Amino acid sequence: MLPTTTNGGKRSASQRSGLPLYLRRIIRPKQMDFEYTFWLMQQLCISPKTAYRHTSYHKQTKNQWARDDPAFVVICCLLLAVAAAAYCATFSDGLWHSVLTVLSAVVVDFLLIGMAIATAGWFLANKFLRKRTLHSHAIEQHVEWMYAFDVHCNSYFPLFLLLYVLQLLLAPLLLWRSLVAALLSNALYAAALGYYHYLSFLGYSALPFLEHTEVFLWPIALILVVLPFAVLTGFSPTRFTLNIYFG
Rank of each mutant, 00 (worst) to 15 (best):
M1S: 15
L2Y: 06
P3L: 11
A13M: 01
S14H: 12
S14P: 09
Q15V: 02
R16G: 07
S17Q: 08
G18L: 12
L19V: 00
Y22A: 04
Q31N: 08
D33P: 06
E35Q: 10
E35T: 02
T37W: 13
S47R: 09
P48I: 08
P48C: 00
K49A: 00
T50K: 02
A51I: 02
Y52V: 14
T55A: 08
Y57E: 05
K62V: 01
N63H: 09
Q64M: 03
W65C: 02
W65D: 04
R67M: 03
R67K: 11
D68P: 05
D68A: 01
D69E: 13
A71Q: 00
L78W: 05
L79V: 02
L80H: 01
A83P: 07
A85N: 14
A85W: 07
T90W: 12
T90E: 06
D93P: 00
L95Y: 00
L95D: 08
H97M: 14
S98T: 13
S98I: 13
V99H: 07
V106N: 01
V107G: 07
D109K: 14
L111C: 14
L111M: 14
L112W: 10
G114V: 09
M115D: 08
I117H: 05
T119G: 12
A120T: 00
K127S: 05
F128E: 03
L129K: 13
L129D: 07
R130W: 11
K131G: 01
T133A: 15
E140S: 03
Q141D: 14
H152D: 12
N154H: 06
L161I: 08
L162M: 13
Y164T: 04
A171I: 05
L173N: 15
R177G: 12
L179F: 10
A181M: 12
A182T: 08
L184F: 08
N186L: 09
N186P: 03
A190C: 01
L193S: 10
A206D: 10
P208M: 11
P208A: 12
L210Q: 05
E211V: 07
H212Q: 14
F216R: 12
P219W: 14
A221I: 05
V225R: 03
P228C: 09
F229E: 06
V231Y: 09
L232K: 14
G234C: 08
G234A: 02
G234P: 06
P237S: 10
P237A: 04
N243L: 02
Y245S: 03
F246C: 05
